[in-house]
């Protein structure tokens, strides 16, 4: 559009300024994680105006070793736990949600509407609040402190089924019909026709699921014991023992956050897809 340059320049300046200010706000904590995890305790907190070290120090390894050698908490094992749980969960939930989504998208069956409405209703319930009865279920089944306890409850992720259903609806019926005529069984339809067309949707859902499980805190806290701690619980434990071990805490946080950043940056386009298709449909 034809613009008058002075007010336009002002808007541009303001816009960029705003953007940069916000970017700085976002960056500072990230920056500090990177730096502080490499600093010794004394350097993280500066007393009375001395300039804190702003560049990476060489202390990462020592911090990490100190972290690892703590009693009661094996940090590395919590890392493996988190990774293992998140991956298994993602795979499991993907399977469940895509199968169910396929059913809703491509089949008619009795009670379809009411079942769907029922699942819809649970969307509003904040997932954290089911902790109490879930815990009872788990302890009755003697399943506390198992991996299954952390993975199973959320495998039927309502958002997941909506997302899969919506994506599957985009598959042309004609494709399935012709496969059926070629003699394919229903299950073959699913994994030979439907799934291959869904790759990017599944990637999107996978990212969302993984993040969900990776960040879960309340439930693992309630149901897991020391040997199976996930990262968030481990960090809490460390804080509990001695709050001022900032250097070790920063290392732990760095391990929790930074690798995920890298993965997330690589996969963000899938994540965005996931948010948007669920979201902007309002």
């Amino acid at each position: 559009m034809h613009e008058k340059s002075k007010t336009e320049a002002l808007w541009r300046f303001g816009g960029y300024g705003f953007l940069i200010a916000a970017a700085l706000f976002m960056i500072v904590p990230i920056y500090w994680i990177v730096i502080a995890s490499t600093l010794p305790q004394s350097a993280i907190l500066s007393s009375s105006g001395a300039l804190p070290q702003l560049l990476p120090g060489g202390h990462f390894v020592e911090n990490f070793q100190a972290l690892q050698s703590r009693q009661y908490v094996n940090f590395m094992s919590s890392v493996w736990n988190s990774i293992f749980i998140a991956i298994v969960y993602t795979v499991l939930a993907l399977i469940l949600c895509s199968m169910a989504g396929f059913a809703f998208a491509k089949y008619e069956f009795r009670f379809k509407k009411s079942i769907f409405a029922g699942i819809l209703a649970t969307l509003i319930i904040p997932v954290n609040l089911l902790v109490i009865p879930l815990f009872l279920v788990m302890s009755t089944a003697n399943m506390t402190n198992t991996y299954a306890a952390v993975i199973l409850p959320w495998a039927a992720y309502p958002v997941g089924i909506f997302f899969m259903r919506q994506s599957m609806q985009a598959i042309p019926d004609a494709l399935l019909e012709s496969a059926r005529m070629d003699g394919a069984s229903e299950f073959q339809l699913f994994y030979r026709v439907a799934i291959p067309s869904m790759r990017s949707s599944m990637a999107a859902l996978a990212v969302i699921l993984f993040l969900f499980q990776w960040n879960m805190f309340l439930w693992p806290l309630v149901v897991l014991d020391t040997d199976k701690f996930t990262i968030p619980v481990a960090i809490t434990k460390i804080m509990g023992q001695q709050v001022v071990a900032f250097d070790q805490l920063m290392v732990a946080s760095a391990v929790a956050i930074l690798p995920m950043f890298v993965v997330f940056l690589a996969l963000q386009k899938y994540f965005v897809r996931g948010i948007l298709s669920g979201a902007v449909k309002e």
Binding site: L45, V233, S253
Partner: peptide, 29 residues
């Protein structure tokens, strides 16, 4: 950049903020 924090572990990032905000921490500076 704006989207990155969304992937941050909720416990870990809280810890980071605590460290930043603690007495003598980065924010004070």
């Amino acid at each position: 950049l704006m989207l990155l924090p969304v992937s941050a572990n909720t416990v870990a990032y809280s810890v980071v903020f605590v460290v930043i905000v603690a007495e003598g921490g980065l924010l004070d500076f």
